[in-house]
Nucleic acid binder design. Structure first.
Length: 468
DNA sequence: ACTGGATCCA
DNA sequence: GATGGATCCA
């Protein structure tokens, strides 16, 4: 059985809006009104999406292999959605009660400090309380007044404790509303599992996205986030969770695609890439503190995002001039990266699109725009896409091969989730060691070239424990 | 305005 | 119901 979502071809060969649902797409692209009757709609959708009825022979040959891969992935994502992931509902509820209790205390503490009750969830009301009632000096202006975002409140918090408590309250409320109440609401009463929906081309780079609920942004870290993640677990004690994630995948891809010898050497030697960059930035003999490493890490990631001095300065909380110095040093130390980026921009200008290692395209008309800001934004998108997109291709290819492997045997283990550079499985105890070996071998074997991709694998009784 | 997303709230 | 602000993720 072969499937095709006819939107995919358009998305991959033009700059058409990817946010169109099927009916909007049919209207826009084919001037066809789909039926409002659910039954007829499903028949129409099946009909138009069925491979044999469609573009099979007209697909641009350069995009053929990506189209082929996406087609083969359709039933795999469908199966993962159908399988779902088990969640310990009682445990999640209990954690929710702990959070609610702590949140309530923070709330009362805030009212006490301010001397009145107000809606802390309303940014507008927080503005009034902080900047008008308490007369705290304002920071950055936004459309609706002055921002009370994380950055602003952290700064204010150095002098006024109230800001810190509001931040703590917000963190707790985010966890409670989105990850306790939000998840409890979508546990399927029949399966007791959560069934997300994967948007196969949810991102313009080729990444998946996940919605209803989004299982790609479950909080990580210690404390409540770890407790929440621990609620995702196997339904039976005969199974464990297995988490396999690509190590530093985007920086390794940047090294491979750019061919930068310094970057490649660092990975080949097994050095810590952030510490390596830190020594470039702060001197070979400098003591690399966790703070310096953190800055270097931001620079490394920033480079993948099409870094600007202004943007980096915001992230590492320094002056744009200082940030620009770091960026210049980075390019001086990894000269192949700058040359590679120039070649991407040249290609984008010439073709109107950029592409991944596997030939996935993204059309970026903005690189030819006369507006400098729009052009700069488009150039950042152009630079990021081949890296993020190649990473997306790699894990999609790995999923295809893993799915085929799982299908060949009569295994009890199942692939459950994908979180961009990470795959989550529930594995049967009897298959655990073998699965670990096979999954690693498949994932590491997808991407060719001298610089090997590495995969970290951890197992445990739940998603938190298996995170390693 | 350093990439790409989704969700909650007012 | 739509939108902007804030915050969670890779």
């Amino acid at each position: 059985m072969s499937f095709l979502d006819i939107r995919h071809y358009k998305y991959l060969t033009s700059s058409i809006d990817r946010n169109l649902d099927f009916s909007a797409f049919m209207d826009f692209e084919h001037h066809y009104q789909v039926s409002e009757n659910k039954h007829e709609y499903s028949i129409e959708r099946s009909y138009f999406s069925y491979k044999e009825s469609l573009v099979e022979n007209t697909v641009d040959s350069s995009i053929q292999s990506i189209m082929d891969m996406e087609s083969k992935l359709i039933p795999i994502f469908a199966q993962m959605e159908r399988t779902g992931v088990y969640v310990d509902e009682k445990k999640l509820r209990d954690i929710g009660e702990d959070i609610a209790r702590e949140s309530k205390n923070k709330e009362l503490e805030i009212y006490d400090l301010v001397g009145e009750r107000f809606n802390i969830n309303s940014a507008k009301q927080v503005q009034v309380i902080l900047f008008e009632k308490l007369g705290i000096p304002v920071s950055k202006k936004i459309k609706t007044g002055y921002t009370v975002d994380n950055e602003a409140l952290s700064l204010i918090g150095q002098k006024y404790e109230i800001a810190n408590i509001i931040l703590q309250y917000r963190t707790l409320e985010k966890l409670r509303s989105t990850y306790i109440d939000g998840l409890l609401r979508v546990i399927n009463p029949h399966t007791k599992r959560i069934h997300t929906t994967y948007n196969q081309l949810g991102a313009s780079t080729g990444r998946l996205s996940s919605e209803s609920p989004n299982l790609q942004n479950i909080p990580s870290g210690s404390g409540y986030p770890a407790r929440i993640k621990s609620c995702f677990c196997p339904e039976s004690s005969e199974f464990s969770f297995l988490v396999a994630d690509y190590s530093q995948v985007e920086l390794r891809i940047l090294a491979s695609l750019s061919g930068d010898t310094s970057l490649i050497e660092t990975f080949v030697r097994g050095e810590d890439i952030h510490t390596r960059t830190a020594r470039f930035l702060f001197g070979e003999d400098a003591t690399i503190t966790s703070e310096l490493r953190r800055i270097a890490k931001s620079v490394n990631f920033g480079v993948i995002y099409g870094i600007t001095g202004f943007g980096l300065s915001k992230v590492i909380n320094t002056s744009p001039a200082e940030a620009t110095k770091y960026i210049d040093t980075f390019y001086a130390m990894y000269p192949g990266v700058r040359a590679y980026y120039q070649s991407i921009l040249d290609g984008a200008n010439k073709n109107g699109y950029v592409e991944t290692f596997y030939g996935r395209r993204r059309y970026i008309p903005g690189v030819r725009d006369s507006n400098k800001m729009i052009r700069a934004g488009a150039e950042r998108e152009a630079i990021n896409m081949p890296i993020q997109g190649t990473a997306a291709d790699i894990i999609k290819l790995a999923m295809l091969r893993i799915s085929n492997f799982l299908k060949e045997g009569t295994y009890k283990s199942r692939m459950l989730l994908q979180v961009h550079d990470e795959l989550v499985f529930e594995v049967h105890e009897s298959e655990k060691d073998m699965m670990e070996k096979q999954i690693r071998s498949i994932m590491e074997g997808v991407f060719p070239g001298p610089l090997k991709l590495l995969v970290d694998i951890h197992t445990g009784a739940n998603w938190s424990e298996a995170k390693g």
